Simulated scan of single mutants.
Amino acid sequence: MTIHNLGENNSLMNKFIAEIRDVDIQKDAMRFRRNIERIGEVLGYEMSKSFRYESSQVHTPLGSKEMSLPTDHVVLCSVLRAGLPLHQGLLNYFDGAENAFISAYRHHRGDEDAFEVIVNYFAAPSLEGKILVLTDPMLATGKTLENVLKVLKNHGTPAQIHIVSVIGAQEGVAHVQKVFPENTHLWISAIDPELNARGYIIPGIGDAGDLAYGEKL
Rank of each mutant, 00 (worst) to 15 (best):
H155K: 14
K143G: 05
G156L: 09
I20D: 09
P193D: 10
E8D: 14
V164S: 02
V173R: 09
I191G: 10
T141A: 06
E66T: 15
G129E: 01
Q88Y: 13
E66R: 15
Y93S: 05
P181W: 02
K15F: 14
E215C: 01
V79D: 03
A140V: 08
Q160H: 14
A114Y: 05
F51P: 04
N92Q: 09
R31F: 07
T2L: 11
D72Y: 09
A197M: 05
F51Q: 10
A159Q: 13
G83V: 10
R52C: 01
F180Y: 15
L134I: 15
M47L: 15
A190W: 06
E171F: 01
A124M: 04
T60K: 12
L145I: 12
S103R: 11
G96S: 10
K49M: 05
M13H: 05
F32W: 07
T144P: 07
S50V: 01
L195P: 02
I167W: 04
I102K: 03
V117H: 04
E46D: 12
H59R: 13
H107P: 01
R198D: 00
E171Q: 15
S55E: 15
P181E: 03
L139I: 09
E182G: 03
G209L: 06
I202Q: 15
R52D: 11
S126G: 11
L195D: 00
S11A: 13
F122W: 06
H59C: 06
P181I: 03
G40Q: 05
A159H: 08
D210Q: 07
W187P: 09
